[in-house]
Amino acid sequence: MERVIQTETDDLSVKRSRSMSSGLWSVEEKREINIRTNDDIEGCFITGSCIIPSGEILLADYNNKKLKKLDNMYNVRCVCDLSHIPYDVCYVRDNVAVVSLSWKKLQFVDTTHSMTLLKSIDTDHECLGLVCHGDQMYVRDCYGSVYSYSTDGIKQQMIYLISRNESFLFNYYIFNNTSPITVSNDGSKLYLPGLNELVTIDNNGNHLFTLNNEDINFKCGVCVDDEGFVYVNDMNWNIIKISEDGRTILQVITNLSNLTGGRSRTLTFDRKNKALIEAGWSDTIIVLKLRK
């Protein structure tokens, strides 16, 4: 059952750049949409999501070991059973998506019609966060390090090794079993959320900037909109907008504490509908229709 809430911009303030004020969003509508199916044994736990060129949405359901495909109205249209627990999903090319699985696996999936499993690849590291741009796929492991792959699943090299000097940060990745990642629209930068920080690197793994903020506990979801702005969600249920260079917090888009029944894990920007899609440990996704 879908729940729709009309809303204006939430009354939350964050220091922001005045020069970017014309690009600020407000939330026109909040919708909660059920994505649990009759075949689901467990409650949904969505750990990864992406939009494919058709406008459909793919959701990786950790608890039920499924890949779910939603139409552009966010209704579940088909489900594909997976051999192992999924962590994330990204679209690569030619109607093919890749799902990162437990036990160090990458699973290729034909996304047309009812979805079909293609080849799977065993890797020499855990595969959690996934993102693709052009002919490059980037995989983040359970420690937060980043590897480059071809879209055929051929490993190229480790491009970024997270510092393990801070044992608390190191344990954060292990305990949460999540390492989100997204890429800028031109493919030149990668964004890596962590504990109280957002790390920005270039596509060769060179560190560009680390945005630290003790008041904002960056969580799991990260995505980029059609203008290049970065969005993350935090442990206070805020969705936060950040500048394209990863240096400046521009806006708190909204707070979701009164909507979602569980911890959020993934965030996707629906460019066609100008909406943010938030999902996590819940049988519903939250769709935030945006306006300027």
Rank of each mutant, 00 (worst) to 15 (best):
E197A: 04
V79A: 08
Y160E: 08
L130P: 08
L192C: 07
S179Y: 00
S150Y: 06
S145P: 10
Y172F: 06
R18V: 06
F168S: 14
N212G: 01
V96W: 01
I174C: 03
K15E: 13
N185G: 06
T248I: 07
G23C: 08
R291L: 05
T7K: 15
F108H: 06
Y74W: 09
T178A: 14
V139H: 00
L192P: 05
T116Q: 11
I240M: 02
L118T: 07
Y231I: 03
D10N: 07
Y149F: 15
Y87D: 08
C78V: 00
I240D: 10
S21Y: 03
R263F: 11
C132H: 03
S21G: 08
L70W: 03
D39Q: 12
N233W: 00
F45A: 13
V79Q: 15
N213S: 06
R140Q: 10
D186H: 05
V183A: 05
K219F: 00
D61G: 07
D186Q: 08
C44Q: 02
V89K: 08
L70K: 07
Q157L: 09
E42G: 04
K155E: 12
T178D: 10
F218L: 08
T178G: 12
C132R: 03
N255L: 04
G205S: 13
H125A: 15
N38W: 05
L106D: 00
K30G: 04
N217C: 09
I240F: 02
S100H: 01
W281A: 11
I52W: 01
R3L: 14
R164M: 09
V232D: 10
L130T: 07
I85M: 06
D283Q: 07
Y172A: 04
I85S: 03
S13C: 01
T200V: 13
C142N: 11
L198Y: 03
E56S: 13
D152Y: 14
S163H: 10
N213T: 04
T123M: 14
R140M: 14
R93G: 10
S163L: 05
L118F: 14
P180G: 02
G134K: 11
I239L: 08
D11E: 11
S145E: 09
S257Y: 09
L190N: 10
S54Y: 06
M235G: 12
